Simulated scan of single mutants.
Amino acid sequence: MQIVRRVKLEDGTITFFLAFGASRQMCRLATTFSTQKQAFTYLQRHRTEFEHMARARLASGELEDGIVVLSML
């Protein structure tokens, strides 16, 4: 699985896609950081944990408007 960064929604919140093969799943990570750069660094540092959380939420159908919503660990 691969994380591909996309546009920020608001300060400290970033949207990214989990890629598995040709499929992509949009995910949103809400953080308490004030900049997108800080949030993205945090995402990269905890990448494995967020991938597992996103996969589990996707498998259980925990989506909000078709998006996997995550928050800080």
Results as ranks from 00 to 15, higher is better:
residue 1 M to H: 02
residue 2 Q to E: 14
residue 4 V to R: 10
residue 5 R to C: 14
residue 6 R to P: 03
residue 6 R to M: 12
residue 7 V to R: 15
residue 8 K to M: 15
residue 9 L to N: 09
residue 9 L to A: 11
residue 9 L to S: 06
residue 9 L to Y: 05
residue 9 L to D: 12
residue 9 L to G: 15
residue 10 E to A: 12
residue 10 E to C: 12
residue 11 D to Y: 06
residue 13 T to C: 06
residue 15 T to I: 12
residue 16 F to C: 03
residue 16 F to K: 02
residue 17 F to C: 08
residue 18 L to C: 08
residue 21 G to S: 06
residue 22 A to Q: 10
residue 22 A to L: 14
residue 24 R to D: 11
residue 24 R to K: 12
residue 24 R to E: 12
residue 26 M to I: 13
residue 28 R to P: 09
residue 32 T to V: 14
residue 33 F to L: 10
residue 34 S to G: 15
residue 35 T to K: 00
residue 36 Q to L: 11
residue 37 K to R: 12
residue 37 K to E: 15
residue 38 Q to A: 09
residue 39 A to R: 07
residue 40 F to G: 03
residue 40 F to T: 14
residue 43 L to Y: 01
residue 44 Q to P: 11
residue 45 R to H: 14
residue 46 H to S: 07
residue 47 R to D: 09
residue 47 R to W: 03
residue 47 R to Q: 11
residue 48 T to Q: 10
residue 48 T to H: 06
residue 48 T to C: 04
residue 48 T to M: 03
residue 48 T to N: 08
residue 49 E to R: 10
residue 49 E to S: 13
residue 50 F to H: 01
residue 52 H to I: 12
residue 52 H to Q: 13
residue 52 H to G: 02
residue 54 A to H: 01
residue 54 A to S: 05
residue 56 A to W: 00
residue 56 A to D: 05
residue 57 R to T: 07
residue 57 R to M: 10
residue 58 L to H: 06
residue 59 A to R: 09
residue 61 G to Q: 03
residue 65 D to T: 05
residue 66 G to F: 09
residue 67 I to W: 01
residue 67 I to E: 01
residue 69 V to S: 10
residue 70 L to G: 01
residue 71 S to G: 12
residue 72 M to T: 12
residue 72 M to L: 05
residue 73 L to H: 10
